[in-house]
Structure formats: structure tokens, C-alpha cells
Design a protein around this nucleic acid. Structure first.
Lengths: 254, 254
DNA sequence: CCCTATTTGTTCGTATGTATC
DNA sequence: TGATACATACGAACAAATAGG
């Protein structure tokens, strides 16, 4: 190591850990690091020193540091990314799901800026799943609207939303002109719609989804499938989303 | 390979793929495999031949097979486990979350046998999160009831449920005697309770959770945190669960 | 595209102290 | 006292993902 590095200490001074008070070393390390995060010494989003550097600082084995870090990761305080490093976790976004779930409105209420980018809007034949949800037959024409949604400039969601091309003729063009799906549906005569059911699973993302969400492929995503219905209970749209689970938690209020 | 292996063919006979009809080879392979799964040639839970064996069977490169398989995995037809193999996905369990969510009742309705195993029931000091949810102060005494729940003999859920030790004196012993938490609460004077909110995230499991759920550590789990309240709206219990996301999808009905 | 360095993830083996039977 | 189990801590090696040239 270059001596000039000493002028830019990347971590607080050495800490004395007691090896005789009966408290496990890894627990003491976790306490110290949690306190430092709480004090803002390591602000949200900041990269922590490497496991090796932390091991040097506390004068313990790397395994001992890892034990402390894994406890903090489970608490949601850290995000550990293989090959990149360890990061202090930013505050996650609560995405509230209620009967009346609207993406933009939802995040605005949490003082998040929102943005969206259409990937494509096109007509295709309904898959078995889409057909079943919308009450159509497999192969019936549907409009698929694929987009990536952002909060505070970070991609948090990749989605495809399907509409019956028969029920909503011309929605293809309307969607391309509108900012939000709610707006497009209103222009197509749907004054109001509500969420009927939402299905949630967790899995690892496809390469394409990982790219869109700018996350590694070994971090899981939340996958949701939701069906929206109009005031008469008829299906309006079926949406499939992948959420960056490191940044979003989905909250269902009854 | 031992010649006797030939007497136990593990896969259907060779299939002719057309290289001239403009349909990508991997799509043709996917069609064939999906048809075979639909026909029950590869029943749910069955291990498929290795990628190499499939490549030999279709006389293509292993990467071509992988392309087909990855499409099927995204559809949820397969489950790929690094180092173990490729398995036909069993039908997943729909765990319905409504205002009145009861574990056993919920799964019985889907003709699933249920079982549970208590890991421990003990008193501890409330963490910040638990205290906040139950309306207590950090360190206040709470009873933690940890269990693993099974459906059809497969572990699908690891959970800890917390109760105020002040509000429910003696629940520690009642829990140990009861089969279900609903029953224990009834014995403690809670006639009815409803789910107020449920929070969902996805992450990779801890070693302990992976062991309980009998799944590899690189398969994600669904993590839910739910708050139950009594008829007066007072918090009754706070539960934190990890779900084997390969076997369960959580469905919220509004 | 390959190659290398960095960093985290995983799995061995070993040793020690403590609690329990 | 021994036998056993368990948690803790260290060391070494290798695997896997990332980033940069």
C-alpha cells in the first residue's frame, strides 16, 4: 500500500473489541457497524470497505466480519453484491396495493418523482394465461403495452399490460400518446377501474429484466400479476410486472 | 456408459427438427418439451435429462437446448437447480391472503394436507420492528412462536409470530398445547382477528431458512410481514414469514 | 473477444471454549 | 471425570460475478 493512502483514511480509527467479556466478536462488530450507519458515517448508498479491509480494521478473520455483515443484510441494513461490494441500503419504496392502485399517484404520495419509458406497444395473440384472465380465447387479438417505470430516476419495475383489442379498438395509438395507462383507459371510455386480484411470486430475473432493472441476475425480483376490472366487474386489463425487490416492498392494506 | 443403460431409455425417441422451415431450432425444441410435459411424459417433480443428454437427443448444441429451457423456466414450467438438474415444476400452491387469513383453512380449501412443526416458543425482548407493529416499546416482553409449516409434506413456510406477553399472559404454554395459532388466541380471549396489512419483499434465504425449506440458497424466498388486529382494531400478533417461492404464490383478493 | 484483478460466495479443515449429560 | 455437542474463530483454497483494459 502507498503511504499517501494514509492521508485519506476510509474508515474510522481502530476499535478495541473485547475478547474476554463473553460477547461474540461478530456481535460486537455488528454493533459497531450498525452504530456507524445510524450516525451517518456510512450514508445510504455508500460502499463499505471490503470484507478484507474490515477484517484488518477489527483485526479478525474475514469469516468473522462476514458473520456480522450477514446479520445486517438480513435486517435490511446492507445490500451485498458479489463481485462489487457491500452497500448501505437506501430507504426502500413502499408500493401500496389497494383496490384503487395507480402507479404515479402511489409514488407521488411518498414524495418520489416518477417516470416511465415505453418499450413497445403492439398487437399480439393472447397467450393462455392472458386469455384466461381477460375472459378471451387463446390467440384472440390483444394489445400489449410494455414499459419500464422509474422512481427517483431508478428503474423499479418492468411490466407488460394487456388489453382486449376487440373491446378497446384503437387503444394501441391512444397508449402511445398518453403518459399513463389510467389516462389511456379513460380516453377509451373506462371511467374507473379497480384491482380485483394480485398474485405474487419471487424468482430470479431473466437477463432482459435484470438489464432493465439495472440489477445483477442473482438478486431476486418480485413478480406480480394483477387483474383490473371496471365498475361492472368486467376485466379491463391484465398486467404482469417484475419489481426490483432491493428497492421496493409491496404493501397490501386490507 | 454401461450397455445395460440402454434397456431403460430415459427419454422419448429422437425427434426430427426441421432446419429449413424458418422456425428457430430452440423454439421447436421448446414446443416438443412442452408437449411432452403436457402429455405427462415428464410428470411434475420429475428430473429432466441433463442439458447434455437433451442436446444429444435433438442433435443440437447445448446452448440451443439452454435457450429452450430458459424460456420454459420463465414460463414457470421448469425449475433449474445449479448442480442438481432440471425439474418439472409441480403445481404451485395459491396462498390466498384476505382480511381473514387462516393458514390451515386456506390450504384445506385447495385439498392440501397441512402440518406444522414448532421450532420454539419463548419469551424475548421486542425488537424495534416488533415493538412498533404491536404498539409496544423496544425491549418490552413478547412471546415469539417459531414454526415451519408444511403442505402435502413439503415445507413451504418458516415463520415467527409475536404476541405481547403483557396482553396475553400464559400464551406461551397455551401455544405449546395448541395445534394452530388461531386456536391459541381463542383460548386467550381473542374471538376473532383480521389481517390489517401485509408487506412483501423477495430476497435470498439465510442458511437456516434454506435448510428448513429444503431449498438451495440461491433460490429466492418471499418474505412477508403481517399485522393482525382484533375487532377493536388493537394489534394482536405480528408475523414474519419466509415462503418457498418455488412452491407457493401469494394471492391477494380485494 | 480474451485476459486479469478485485471482491464476494462456498467449502473444506482445525482449534478452542463452554455447556450439558 | 469424561464424553458429547455446540458456537465461535481462524486459515486456506477455490468458485463465481464484476469491472476494466
Amino acid at each position: 500500500m502507498n503511504p499517501s493512502d494514509l492521508s485519506a483514511p476510509t474508515s474510522p480509527a481502530g476499535v478495541d473489541l473485547s475478547r474476554e467479556n463473553g460477547v461474540a466478536l461478530w456481535k460486537q462488530i455488528q454493533q459497531v457497524l450498525e452504530a456507524e450507519i445510524a450516525q451517518g458515517i456510512w450514508p445510504p448508498g455508500e460502499k463499505l470497505p471490503t470484507e478484507f479491509q474490515l477484517a484488518e480494521r477489527f483485526d479478525v478473520n474475514r469469516h468473522t466480519v462476514r458473520r456480522a455483515l450477514s446479520g445486517m443484510e438480513e435486517k435490511g441494513l446492507l445490500r451485498v453484491e458479489q463481485g462489487r461490494g457491500i452497500f448501505v441500503h437506501e430507504h426502500v419504496i413502499d408500493y401500496m396495493v389497494t383496490k384503487r392502485t395507480r402507479f404515479t399517484e402511489n409514488l407521488r404520495r411518498q414524495n418520489r418523482s416518477t417516470d416511465g419509458k415505453f418499450l413497445f406497444v403492439e398487437m399480439e395473440g393472447a397467450s393462455e394465461k392472458v386469455a384466461k384472465a381477460l375472459g378471451l380465447r387463446e390467440g384472440d387479438p390483444v394489445i400489449c403495452c410494455a414499459k419500464v417505470s422509474y422512481a427517483d430516476g431508478r428503474p423499479i419495475n418492468v411490466s407488460e399490460t394487456y388489453f382486449s383489442a376487440v373491446r378497446f379498438p384503437g387503444i394501441e395509438d391512444v397508449l402511445r400518446e398518453c403518459e399513463s395507462i389510467t389516462e389511456a383507459l379513460q380516453r377509451c371510455g373506462v371511467r374507473d377501474y379497480t384491482r380485483k386480484s394480485t398474485r405474487v411470486i419471487a424468482r430470479l430475473p431473466s437477463q432482459a429484466d435484470a438489464d432493465h432493472l439495472r440489477q445483477p441476475r442473482n438478486r431476486p425480483v418480485l413478480v406480480t400479476e394483477g387483474l383490473d376490472v371496471d365498475e361492472q366487474g368486467r376485466p379491463v386489463s391484465f398486467g404482469a410486472s417484475r419489481w426490483a425487490s432491493d428497492w421496493v416492498q409491496i404493501v397490501f392494506e386490507s
